[in-house]
Simulated scan of single mutants.
Amino acid sequence: MTTPSPAEPVAVAVELERLRGTMEAGFARVDGSLALLVQRGDQTDKQLADHETRLDALERGRWPLPSIAAVCGLAGLGIALYELAAR
């Protein structure tokens, strides 16, 4: 069995330091990508809430139309019955 030379531990330490730097750079890139995805998700949630608000406003403004149609229909029926009774 051979004994390791004094240069081998230094080489191992240098390679470990390079590996550490590579891992840190990779984690930083992944962290940046995740932050971007979170930001896009927040923007999507904001847009969805805005669309819900606008849709609710449109639905509130639309509700009187069927009521007005029903009142006009009843008024027409009333006028028709009045004319029929007047004969």
Results as ranks from 00 to 15, higher is better:
R18A: 12
A7N: 02
P4Q: 09
A11R: 12
P6Q: 00
D45I: 09
L58H: 13
V14S: 09
L77G: 01
L48E: 07
A35V: 03
G76C: 12
P9E: 01
L84R: 10
E83K: 10
V10A: 10
Q39P: 00
T3K: 13
G26F: 00
R40H: 12
P9Y: 08
L19W: 06
D50A: 15
A35W: 04
T22W: 09
P6L: 01
E59M: 11
R29C: 00
L77Y: 05
T3W: 01
R87Y: 11
L36S: 14
L77C: 06
E52G: 02
D56N: 10
A75T: 10
L16I: 05
D42L: 14
F27E: 14
V14R: 15
Y82R: 03
S67P: 03
W63Q: 10
G78S: 11
D50G: 04
E59D: 06
M1I: 03
A25G: 02
L74P: 03
E83L: 15
L36C: 04
T22P: 01
G32F: 11
S5I: 02
M1V: 05
L77N: 00
R29K: 11
V38L: 11
R60H: 07
L16D: 12
L58N: 12
L84W: 13
D31A: 14
E24G: 02
T22R: 14
P64V: 01
R87L: 04
Q47A: 10
L48D: 09
S33P: 00
K46D: 09
A49S: 08
G76A: 15
A75Y: 07
T53H: 14
R54D: 12
L84Q: 07
I68C: 01
D45E: 13
P6V: 02
P4L: 15
G61M: 03
R54I: 07
R20H: 09
L74W: 08
M23V: 12
L65S: 12
D42F: 09
S67W: 08
R18L: 13
G73K: 00
Q39E: 15
S5V: 04
L34S: 09
R54K: 15
A57S: 13
V14N: 04
S5E: 09
H51S: 05
R87A: 09
P64Q: 08
D31F: 06
Q39T: 10
L81Y: 10
D31Y: 06
R40W: 08
D42G: 09
